[in-house]
Design a protein around this nucleic acid. Sequence first.
DNA 1: ATGGTAGTATGACTA
Length: 261
Amino acid sequence: MRIATWNVNSIRSRIDRVEAWLERSDVDVLAIQETKATDAQFPFDRLQALGYEVAHHGLNHWNGVAIVSRVGISDVTPSFPDAPAWGDPPVVEARALTATCGGVKVTSVYVPNGRQIKDPHMVYKLEWLAQLRRQAQLSVDAGETAAIMGDWNIAPQDEDVWSMEYYLDKSHVSPGERAAFQGILDAGFVDVVRPHTSEPGTFTYWDYTRLAFQKRRGMRIDFILGTPAFAARVAGAAIDREERKGKGASDHAPVVVQLED
DNA sequence: ATGGTAGTATGACTA
C-alpha cells in the first residue's frame, strides 16, 4: 500500500495536477491539505472517476483537509477533541480529518502557520499542537496502526531550512514550535520519511517568491508521523520534488510512503 | 529594497 500527503494550495486550481499525479504515483491513500473549498466547491466527481473515495472537511475558502482512498474509507471524523478555535467569533477551523483506510487510521493535518514568533496565531498554533499531542498519545497507547500526516508548518531541525540565518527570529524554527513537534514524537510517533530522505537540502516546500525553488531555498515542513505499529510496516519513502516544477505547481511537494502488506 | 508570487469570498488578506 502506498500512502501520501500533499498540501495542494487549492483543490480547485490544482485538480488537473492532482488527477495526473494520482494516476502516475499509484498511491492508494492521499491526505490533502489546503483544499480552500467548501464541500459544495470540492471536485468529488473528478477523484471518484479515478476510483477513489473521498472524505473532505472544508468550511470556507481557508484551510480545508481531505483524504482520498481506493482501499476503503470509514470512521470519517472531522477535527479532533479539544481542538482550539480561532477568529472572531472563535471557530474550530477545518485543519484536521481522520479516517480509516485499508486498516490504517489516517489523519490529515494542516497545522496553524503561527505567522510570527510574537503573534496570537503562534499561541493558537502551540495550543493546537498540544491538543493534537493528547490524541497522539491515546493512539499510541491503544496500539493503533495510525499516521498523522500533513503540513506541520515546523522545520524541526536546522538542516530542514535552506538557511538558519534567514529564518532566525522567524516562525517555523523557534524552540517553542520545535518543542511542540517533539511532543508528538515523545508521544511515540515516528518520522517514517526522514530515514529514507536524509540527503542534505531535502525539502518539501519552496516559497513561490524570489525563485526559491530554482535556488533550492526550501523547508522540510511536511511530515508523515506514524505509530510504532505503522512505522514497522514502512518499506520506503520519497519526496516528489518533480511535482514542484513547472507552471501551476503547488508550493509543496507530495510526500509518499510505501507500506508492506 | 516589507520587495517577490499565488491563492481566495480579490483593491485585502493568507501563506
